[in-house]
Write a protein that binds this DNA or RNA. Structure first.
Lengths: 196, 196
DNA sequence: AGGCGATCCTAACACTTGTTAGTTTTCATT
DNA sequence: AATGAAAACTAACAAGTGTTAGGATCGCCT
């Protein structure tokens, strides 16, 4: 009767979330079963319900954890940076690093959110929309201040966020380039396209 | 006993593919059931098997149709365009337009390919890798000819393709901007970041 | 009118799904 | 060593999965 091993500073729920995240990414939320998750933990499926309430609770926890981290990072950046270009550069860097460090979680929050049950789904999408609105406000201000070239802010935000989310593909590949090269080149590309 | 209506120039298989594509996108491949697809067509699930051989055959057909279209477009562009910048601009436009016109298909080929069964999965990924390699060769040549700024070609390709695939998000939203504005601004952003 | 292939239906199959109930084991604290 | 909570187990559930078999019905062609 193997137990879920309690690791350093992690609740059992978090350990389940991590294993589940891996499987959700590999097979998709729908195709990854509770029995799959349990097996990955060396445990029976029913045992998971001592630590979580449902399969979708795992998804909720992951999605909102990621969303909250991005929001608090954004607030930090808005406080600390001076020019609009620096703001955007820092935001881009935060996103890239989150994608590099918390790959599984960010991926799921990017791709599997539509399996959230209501009302969490609406909640998530509202948060997302407002987050993007705040980014496009920064870009609009950059254009007004003549720091950025005249580009539709909505399109710019879409382009930036989507480009970064594509790092998934690098992560999945046999890495022919390092994370550092990836980061610096992508920042360069995205910022150069923004600059006046 | 409602029949699957034969439309203009479409085999019944193609009609099934279109309805299925919609559902695969909305719910994901795993979560969209054969009974869902059948219901959308006003038919029983078993009846579908007169026109297709399996659920995953639908996915295969969609993924490889998209892949083939991109490849033949690429060959066309490589023949007709002169400078490397023009080549990339045309390729980007082709991708954007495919995303705008054949939204459902492209989305599935972008996001649901991992549910392909072997050996189709390996096949698909090989095609994809070689396609991206050809794009990054164009960029490398652009750098050599001093038409483009010095950027890692792999990262550039990743950025471009991911950015375009993010149009999905526009498609899903209440469109506050037109397709034309989206296209022209995204092309501008992605090409400006590439130019020397 | 009769036939025939295409296309549909119903019924069923063997499995898998998330989840619950009830029981037993583990382990830290007394 | 005894206690009690935490966490595991087995067994089962109702519902849903892709798919097949066999029979009914449609619509076109002679």
């Amino acid at each position: 009767m193997a137990r879920i091993q309690s690791k350093k500073n992690s609740t059992k729920k978090e350990i389940i979330m991590e294993k589940a995240a891996r499987l959700f990414r590999e097979k998709g939320f729908g195709a990854a079963s509770m029995r799959d998750i349990a097996e990955a933990l060396g445990v029976e499926a029913a045992s998971l319900y001592n630590h979580i309430q449902s399969k979708s609770e795992i998804l909720q926890a992951i999605c909102f954890k990621v969303a909250n981290e991005f929001i608090s990072h954004l607030e930090e950046v808005e406080r600390d940076s001076d020019t609009t270009l620096k703001k955007m550069e820092n935001i881009i860097k935060v996103h890239i690093r989150m994608m590099l460090d918390s790959y599984e979680y960010v991926y799921i929050s990017d791709h599997e959110w539509r399996h959230l049950p209501e009302p969490y789904l609406s909640n998530f999408l509202n948060q997302r929309r407002s987050y993007r609105k705040r980014l496009s406000d920064i870009i609009q201000e950059g254009i007004n201040r003549n720091e950025m070239k005249n580009i539709d802010p909505y399109v710019a935000v879409l382009t930036i966020l989507s480009a970064i989310s594509g790092i998934e593909s690098w992560h999945r590949s046999r890495k022919t380039i390092t994370a550092e090269i990836l980061e610096s080149n992508m920042v360069k590309y995205l910022i150069e396209g923004l600059k006046k």
